Computed example of a mutant assay.
Amino acid sequence: MSGTANGLRDDDLPAMFRSSDGASLAGQRRYLQGTKWRLVLAVAAALCGVLNQRPALIALVLIFVATVCVEIWLLTERPEQAWYDGRALAESAKTLAWRYAVAGAPFSAELSQGEAAHRFNERLKELLREAPATSLAPVGLVAVTDAMNVLRARSFADRKNAYLRDRIEDQQRWYATKASWNVARARRWRLLLVAIEGLGLAAAVLRLTGILTFDLAGVLGAVLGAGAAWFAVRQYETLGRAYTFAATELSIIHGRLSQADEGCWAQEVADAEEAISREHTMWRASRGAG
């Protein structure tokens, strides 16, 4: 079955969405793995450096070689660009698909299916022309899917209910869940970093008094630096605030859409999709993506 009476699943969206979504997820996975290895190697280098023994010094050389290799790979492959560019293209394709399927502007119900499909395909072509090569992975060629046409052909009430439930409410739940998850992670990481700082202070005092001869404080300093760098990469606090704001804004949009009649529906959908796109634009900006 290609779709549901309720709305659109990810499999019901154009192939461009699945292609760019796959490229984004792969880029994110590679980037985070590369970053993890870089930070782990930094801690390992600090540990080998304080041991000051021949095997440890040999290991230190190998660690720096590995670190250089990871850095070169990150610089040449730039997996974060595939992550950001792919996500931008995926969200753009998704918003166009929902606009088309529920007769939102610029694909209002006054247009025939053929004319609306032609306009939709032209919009997808524009996205493809502007999309960086890193934003796509090979996938099928279908533009307008059967599920999109089925939903578009349904009554206004059915389209409205499907959009409210399977687009707005689903997106709101996603933002709310992600907000709670990021806030919780931020709190845990803050506590962990404070604990490492406390251990580093204790180790430094013990080293100063001569009780501890091993430079544990130096190792803990490297661990603290790696932890802080990972915390900055994941941006738990920033995302927690942004997702909370987005969930709140979508609740307001839901109320407005619930009151919309068929005469203003197309524009209300367009405004709702603009709000969703704006949240993604803010996410990209927080990641330093253009």
Score class of each variant (00 low, 15 high):
Leu13Val: 05
Gly227Val: 06
Glu126Arg: 12
Glu122Thr: 14
Arg9Ala: 14
Ile253Lys: 09
Val139Thr: 12
Glu115Val: 12
Leu193Ser: 05
Phe156Arg: 01
Ala226Tyr: 06
Ala247Arg: 03
Val144Lys: 04
Leu127Met: 08
His254Asp: 10
Arg123Asp: 11
Glu169Cys: 08
Thr248Glu: 15
Arg256Tyr: 09
Leu193Gln: 09
Asp12Lys: 02
Gln28Ile: 06
Leu193Ala: 05
Gly34Leu: 14
Glu71Asn: 10
Arg284Trp: 09
Gly225Ser: 06
Arg185Lys: 15
Trp98Cys: 00
Ala222Lys: 08
Leu111Phe: 04
Gly49Arg: 06
Val205Asp: 04
Ala184Glu: 14
Gly27Thr: 04
Leu224Asn: 06
Ile72Pro: 02
Lys36Pro: 00
Leu250His: 02
Phe64Arg: 10
Ala266Asp: 10
Gly114Gln: 11
Val50Asn: 05
Leu199Trp: 12
Trp98Glu: 03
Ser286Val: 01
Leu201Asn: 05
Trp174Leu: 13
Val269Asn: 02
Arg159Phe: 09
Leu216Lys: 07
Leu127Ile: 15
Ala45Met: 11
Leu74Glu: 10
Trp37Lys: 13
Ala242Phe: 01
Arg165Gly: 06
Val194Phe: 08
Val194Arg: 08
Val205Lys: 08
Cys264Leu: 11
Ala15Gly: 01
Thr209Lys: 07
Thr145Ser: 12
Gln113Leu: 12
Thr177Met: 12
Ala157Val: 13
Pro138Thr: 06
Val68Gly: 01
Ala217Asp: 15
Gly49Ala: 15
Gln53Val: 13
